[in-house]
Nucleic acid binder design. Structure first.
Length: 650
RNA sequence: GCCGGAGUAGCUCAGCUGGCAGAGCGAUUCCUUCGUAAGGAAUAGGUCGAGGGUUCAAAUCCCUCCUCCGGCUCCA
């Protein structure tokens, strides 16, 4: 507490809404002791106005205070931050030449970016052992304040820490260090009290990262790890990672023979018959939704002259970044389309339009090619050749918001249908944008208003939009928690102007329409990847590549099995007969492994009574089932796109 | 593109201190005709990702390239 403010008091707000008055200069820890001595002793750190801070930080008048103890969610963050320090200390014990940069906690662990040292996985194992020794030694972790000068001195050979002193810690004097044993790090904290508090720690992988995340900056070595209060929690974490790997769409895609991405075509998926069945269902579903929204389907070619993309700005945005496949042919530059907009704009422009014609909407399953960097490719989730369920609505300015709202409404229906959890984002104008700031603002407002009028929560990602306009991004998570944009809605005032697209207004003057770019699923590839992981391959009946498999108990009933199959075939169901020379148990096991929604088992009893025995993927069984009843149920279940097999109601 | 890891039979993987290329599952054939999560036997199956080098000898050691995985940057 500082002497000068000793008289003044400050009032802080606690999580339950009550207020507490403490002497000015009080720290988070002081506030905790004020609430109760037990809480004071348990305090690890605090939150001031939602931001995680050290328990030694002073509170200010009106601050919302939260005390972080071992029971708080934020405690793990603190503990992992300390684990990052333990890593750095261990690293420098074994590799004194290593230079430290930053080492923050993340959602599920921590990382530390270092340089001046080459590390591989064997090094990681050694460092981990050293870290365990540091936990064992249970060093006190102490916050120490040092003068700027002292800090700059200490980091005479570390340009990164000096950079931090000049930016994040600009003007701070003294600055805080955290010290454990004979090791220290410039750090704001907070940290746990001693290294022994970290119950379990592990290093996960090694990668490179750019200083301050910018590609032009120095490349650093990043080591990822995580930490928990106990070994048991760490075990649980590692088990969950293994379970997540079981959902991996690449693994399931191979097991179910859905698709492949061969070496001869990196980033370009080949759909096998089973995968194509799913793709067709998705496309038909989206056609229905596009009909609902008033889109007319078109098709435009992949191959175009490169000049198509010059006026739109795509050429600058894609070609010059090396992201477009383009080449010289007979003295002319050709390319594969990276987006469908220019072709749809052509269709609009090929005729004249009255204000009465708008909105005019074109949809296309448009296959585009983008030369994504090799290290970016990831199964179906990030590819070079992708088919978007793309669409462009050409609207009058007064129609923008309504059009967006209707589109978002349908998108919500779609994601509800799949049970996908979606994160809404608005991405705003970036450095590469074309068009005036005013136009961008109007367009961004239109998106914001549409989301807000539907009461949807969204994050804002500043500066992340495409070059031609702001966008709403709908993100889904994959099995290991990565977020991928699937659907998107974008407002574009720029391309219509650049291409001089016009319609004749009520005033008999020519006006530029506004283009709304949208994709409901995003790309078939990414959506399939997300969907496979979401369902863990256990698709709802309407999507399942093989919906029913008929298993004859023995060859004697093979004929009856085929008659049952025909009945299901006639209803348009995807059904096969298992005719391999296997025992019934073997056939059932295989059908479960193949993730069949339903299997039908037929033997002498069934043939005699003209019934079937049904077993679903949940291992529910029903005997003496009438074939017609079963078919009727499946048709309804399929047509209503029910999420799970429910013929056998339990 | 950058850092780390990996590429051996259709799949999952062993072999990699250089010395005859292996297993399980799957496939094929034969036997079995089976009642709700793996019946038995035999057989076939390989450019050890590609190219180059070292060596008497390379899946194994060295170099270059390709592809995949995790992360960074970037995106549907």
């Amino acid at each position: 507490m500082s002497e000068t403010d000793a008289q003044a008091d400050v009032t802080v707000v606690l999580p339950d809404g009550s207020s507490l008055t403490v002497p000015a200069g009080s720290t988070v820890e002081d506030v905790a002791y004020e609430i109760g001595p037990g809480l004071g002793r348990d305090t690890v750190a605090g939150k001031i106005d939602g931001e995680l801070v050290s328990k030694h930080d002073a509170v200010h008048d009106g601050a919302e205070i939260e005390i972080v103890t071992e029971d708080s969610d934020a405690y793990l963050t603190v503990l992992r931050h300390s684990a990052a320090h333990v890593f750095a200390q261990a690293l420098q014990r074994l590799h004194p030449e290593a230079t430290l940069t930053i080492g923050p906690p993340t959602d599920d662990g921590f990382y530390y970016d270092v340089t001046g040292v080459d590390l591989d996985e064997d090094d990681l194992a050694e460092i981990e052992t050293e870290m365990e020794a540091i936990l064992e030694a249970d060093y006190d972790i102490e916050r120490v304040e040092r003068s700027r000068e002292e800090a700059l001195d200490a980091y005479a050979d570390n340009e990164f820490k000096r950079d931090i002193l000049e930016t994040e810690a600009a003007g701070e004097d003294p600055v805080s260090f955290y010290v454990q044993d004979d090791w220290q790090d410039l750090c704001q904290g907070p940290h746990v009290d001693s290294t022994g508090e970290i119950g379990a720690v592990t290093l996960l992988n090694i990668s490179s990262a750019y200083w301050r995340g910018e590609e032009d900056n120095e490349s650093l070595t990043r080591v990822y790890g995580t930490a928990f209060g106990s070994e048991a929690d760490l075990e649980e974490f590692l088990e969950m990672r293994e379970e997540a790997a079981e959902r991996d769409h690449r693994k399931i895609g191979r097991e179910m023979d859905l698709f492949s991405i061969p070496d001869h075509s990196p980033g370009c998926a080949h759909y096998h018959p089973n995968g194509m069945r799913i793709r067709r269902e998705l496309e038909e579903y989206i056609r229905e939704k596009n009909d609902e929204l008033g889109y007319e389907e078109v098709w435009t070619p992949e191959l175009n002259k490169a000049e198509l993309w010059k006026p739109t700005g795509h050429y600058d945005a894609f070609k010059e970044a090396g992201e477009m496949f383009a080449w010289e042919q007979d003295d002319t530059e050709y390319g594969l389309k990276p987006m469908n907009c220019a072709n749809h704009a052509h269709i609009f422009d090929d005729d004249q339009h009255s204000y009465r014609d708008l909105p005019l909407r074109y949809s296309e399953f448009g296959t585009v090619y983008r030369n994504e960097q090799s290290g970016e490719l990831s199964g179906l989730l990030r590819v070079r050749g992708l088919t978007q369920d793309d669409g462009h609505a050409f609207v009058r300015p007064d129609q923008i918001e309504d059009e967006i709202r209707r589109t978002i409404g349908v998108i919500e229906d779609i994601y509800d249908q799949f049970g996908l959890e979606i994160i809404y984002k608005i991405e705003t104008q970036g450095d590469n944008s074309v068009g005036s700031d005013d136009i961008w603002e109007t367009a961004t407002d239109a998106l914001r208003n549409a989301l807000e009028s539907k009461g949807l929560e969204y994050d804002v990602e500043a500066g992340e939009a495409a070059f031609y306009g702001p966008k709403i991004g709908l993100d889904a998570r994959d099995a290991i928690g990565r977020e991928w944009t699937i659907g998107t809605v974008q407002v574009d005032f720029n391309i219509p102007e650049r291409l001089e697209l016009t319609y004749t207004g009520e005033d008999n003057d020519e006006h530029h329409p506004v283009m709304i770019h949208r994709a409901l699923l995003g790309s078939i590839e990414r959506f399939m990847g997300v969907t496979i992981e979401h369902f863990k391959g256990n698709f709802p009946l309407w999507l399942a590549p093989e919906q029913v498999r008929v298993l004859p108990v023995s060859d004697d009933t093979l004929g009856y099995a085929h008659r049952v199959k025909n009945a299901l075939d006639d209803a348009g169901l995807r059904v096969e007969v298992e005719d391999r020379d296997w025992t019934v148990g073997r056939k059932i096991r295989q059908a479960h492994d193949d993730r069949l929604p339903y299997m039908v088992i037929v033997g002498g009893d069934e043939e005699e009574s003209d019934t079937i025995s049904v077993r679903d993927r949940f291992e529910n069984e029903a005997d003496d089932v009438d074939v017609e009843t079963f078919v009727d149920h499946l048709v309804a279940e399929r047509d209503e796109k029910r999420a799970e097999p429910d013929f056998i109601d339990v």
